[in-house]
Amino acid sequence: MTLHNDDVRAIAALNRIRIEDRDVEATAVALSGIFGLFDALAQVDTTDVKPMAHPLDLVARLRPDRAEPVTQSGTYQTLAPDADDGLYRVPKVIG
């Protein structure tokens, strides 16, 4: 499959990655090359094959409903590029 410049722009916007106009073409070429690898799969008959989501055929282990206090919230806040009054700050979002 070949990806075009508009495909690259759309998927980059969906993933919130700014791609400069001058880089769009090169990215489209690189991604098209990668998607070229995938063509092999289309030839394989997988009609009765169950999708494999996980390497081990296990089921979830559940945890008892016990609350533990959050002791490090102060530390977590210090990791933030912009936090104030216990809140993370982001540019104004209009509801």
Binding site: N15, R16, I17, T27, A30, L31
Partner: peptide, 21 residues
């Protein structure tokens, strides 16, 4: 968009875009 474009290198960006696609 800018934080992610600046923070991630080229190969990581390629894989994110491939994966999302």
């Amino acid at each position: 968009e800018r934080s992610r474009a600046e923070g991630f290198g080229r190969e990581v960006q390629r894989r994110i875009l491939t994966g999302a696609y």
